[in-house]
Design a protein around this nucleic acid. Structure first.
Length: 296
DNA sequence: CGCCAGGCCTTAC
DNA sequence: GTAAGGCATGGC
């Protein structure tokens, strides 16, 4: 076992593990107390991630983070939780707007995540018309049933399935696991990636709007899910997924941004949210509205 | 019971 | 290109 720590001084602008991991961006982490999304997280619980054949356990301390892992987890944690982002600068750059400022103020330390592209693609295909708690259940089920088991510290963890592993599933299998009408989407998309027809990581090379179009070739991926993959996996910080909560905010607070089509409305709200880091703003506003911290 | 959840697909115009 | 209807499932 390797262990280490990331001092508070490295986390410019702060870091809140609960807000970052339990705000509906990532479905790859579990919590050692089994109470993910509980309103009162126990302070001494570990967040746990199985990725690329390794297991990482992380928890906040009074001075930053401590971790235990099968490997040197420092670079993996920094990348996955974007700990090297200058969050202070990002917050300072946010537009002077009441809703945006209130959302940032309410959730200090919330960072964007960076998950593997295939994992994110499948996770957000599952997200259609589904609450975040149940998305997490679906993704955990896929990992348990199709992902590689890894033993660490006396417990079994499951990596997210590779395209090849997930492509062995049938629509019927996934319906039996509770995925509903998303089952054929997941199977077809996994096969597309496994067969080498396309890979979500390839979108990273394209300009933002072309990248979004590229991702819609996968079955079950429309513009909204594509935006989530771009934002939570591929580093397109300007992406603003237009989900039900952001659409409520547009209708109530930014009606002039409703331009009818997804593409045009997306451009308008992206500009209103400050452009370069509009996706950061979106994630704060989404979380504030979804949890009822703020309302519009 | 009805409504909703980080929507997408097919079909029709 | 846009609009309408169908689609699984579980919580409230």
């Amino acid at each position: 076992m390797e262990t280490g720590a990331i001092p508070d001084g490295d986390l410019t602008g702060g870091f809140d593990a609960y807000l970052t991991i339990e705000s509906g961006q990532t479905y790859r982490w579990t919590r050692s107390d089994g109470r993910l999304y509980a309103a009162d997280p126990s302070a001494d619980a570990w967040y746990e991630l199985a990725i690329d054949g390794e297991v990482i356990r992380v928890r906040p301390t009074g001075d930053g983070l401590e971790w235990r892992s099968t490997t040197d987890a420092d670079p993996i944690i920094r990348r996955a939780l974007r700990l090297d982002d200058d969050l202070e600068r990002i917050v300072d750059a946010a537009p002077d707007d009441p809703l945006i400022q209130a959302a940032y103020e309410a959730h200090r330390g919330l960072r964007l995540v960076r998950d593997p592209p295939f994992d994110t693609l499948i996770s957000f295909i599952c997200s259609a018309q589904m609450r975040v708690e149940r998305i997490n259940t679906m993704v955990s089920t896929l990992a348990r049933e199709y992902g590689t088991a890894i033993e660490f510290d006396g417990r079994t963890h499951h990596d997210f399935p590779t395209p090849d592993q997930l492509a062995t599933a049938t629509e019927s299998d996934l319906r039996d696991l509770g995925l509903g009408y998303r089952a054929p989407y997941v199977v077809d998309t996994a096969r597309m990636v496994a067969d080498g027809e396309a890979h979500p990581a390839d979108a990273a090379e394209l300009p933002y709007e072309e990248a979004r179009e590229y991702l819609t070739r996968f079955v079950g991926v429309g513009e909204k899910v594509a935006d989530c993959v771009l934002l939570f996996s591929l580093g397109f910080d300007e992406a603003v997924p237009l989900d039900t909560w952001i659409r409520k905010a547009i209708a109530a607070t930014y009606p002039e941004c409703d331009r009818g089509s997804y593409a045009e409305t997306s451009r308008a709200i992206r500009d209103r949210f400050g452009g370069e880091y509009a996706g950061y703003v979106q994630t704060y506003v989404f979380h504030a509205l979804r949890t009822g911290t703020l309302s519009v």
